[in-house]
């Protein structure tokens, strides 16, 4: 029943379908919105993408193992609040940034510990911490928003360096690292093994629990990093940072061909999924200028794309 991509030769079908869709969307957009495809404006607007993109890396790995992390948005909120709190008490951006990353790491570690030690289903654990982290952020900050961290700090996220936005550069480096890890190292292959059949993976000597723990911790750390970029971009740290991100990130990852049942998925696929969503959003809001239409289009896109991939891959296989 779960489509775990049994036939290896068809493993890239999903990515191909998404790539074709992306080309169609881009062509369409270039035709409808003048100047849509200009490299400069694309690079400028790409800053709306990087936080999602960074979160999506961790999420891809987690979904490949058959898990899920619903708490990334809330982790961002908590990290942001810690950043603001530390900055306002110490005045040091460095200390605040480190605290922000550390908070993300800790949140992730708590998820990881609950998933691997208590062996609870990740959906249940992260559904609980989804509410808890956001709540702690709200309570601890008392809803207060921290702001004015200085132009130099927000330039890190808004500015670009030799034409390349800094968060984009970070993402590309990380994505390369993750892709190599996933396809070239034994640990990367273990993730697929866990996603395919956890029991078999365990019996073949893979320390499933340890890997799980580190995966969720990584996802937490990435959420901390995303939160840092997000805070810098809007020069504001508040408890509502990252609200609703979890679903958007999962949408991108799934659209990129990662099987929600685990055992299948790639980093390039996720990048395609991210791009497709990003460009579609830009197209809808720049051409139609309607936020409600944007959610309708993204929702339908997700269903139609996955349905199309299912149909195509089934036809090929039979």
């Amino acid at each position: 029943m779960p489509d775990t991509g049994g036939g290896r030769s068809y493993a890239w079908w999903h990515e191909t379908v998404i790539a074709v869709l992306l080309v169609i969307v881009l062509q369409f957009a270039g035709w409808l919105v003048p100047g849509f495809l200009k490299l400069q404006s694309q690079l400028l607007l790409s800053r709306q993408l990087w936080e999602f993109a960074i979160l999506a890396l961790g999420m891809t790995l987690i979904i490949i193992t058959g898990g899920i992390d619903l708490s990334v948005g809330s982790t961002m909120g908590l990290s942001a609040v810690v950043f603001g709190g530390v900055h306002s008490s110490s005045g040091s951006l460095m200390a605040a940034s480190l605290a922000c990353l550390a908070t993300g790491l800790c949140c992730g570690a708590v998820n990881g510990a609950l998933v691997s030690r208590l062996r609870l289903h990740p959906l249940i654990v992260t559904l609980a911490t989804f509410a808890a982290y956001r709540g702690i952020a709200e309570g601890w900050s008392q809803g207060h928003s921290y702001s004015r961290f200085g132009d130099a700090f927000s330039d890190l996220a808004r500015g670009s360096w030799l034409g390349v936005p800094l968060p984009g550069a970070i993402f590309v480096l990380m994505a390369t690292g993750f892709a190599v890890f996933l396809s070239k190292t034994p640990y990367g292959r273990f993730l697929y093994a866990i996603g395919h059949n956890e029991r078999a993976a365990k019996f073949s000597g893979i320390s499933v629990n340890r890997i799980r723990f580190w995966l969720y911790t990584t996802s937490g750390l990435l959420a901390g990093l995303a939160s840092l970029i997000y805070v810098a971009r809007f020069d504001t740290a508040q408890a509502d940072v990252g609200k609703g991100f979890e679903l958007d990130v999962i949408t991108a990852v799934v659209l990129g061909g990662t099987s929600i049942y685990g055992g299948r998925g790639t980093i390039p696929g996720t990048m395609l999924g991210l791009l497709l969503i990003h460009e579609t959003r830009l197209l809808v809001s720049r051409y139609w200028g309607s936020d409600e239409l944007r959610s309708i289009v993204i929702g339908c896109l997700l269903i139609v794309a996955v349905l199309a991939c299912q149909l195509v891959s089934r036809k090929r296989r039979s």
């Binding site: 679903l247 949408t251 409600e292 959610s295 309708i296 993204i298 929702g299 269903i303």
Partner: peptide
């Protein structure tokens, strides 16, 4: 998930 966003819009 798709319906969640689409129906709200």
């Amino acid at each position: 998930l798709g319906l969640l966003t689409a129906l709200r819009g």
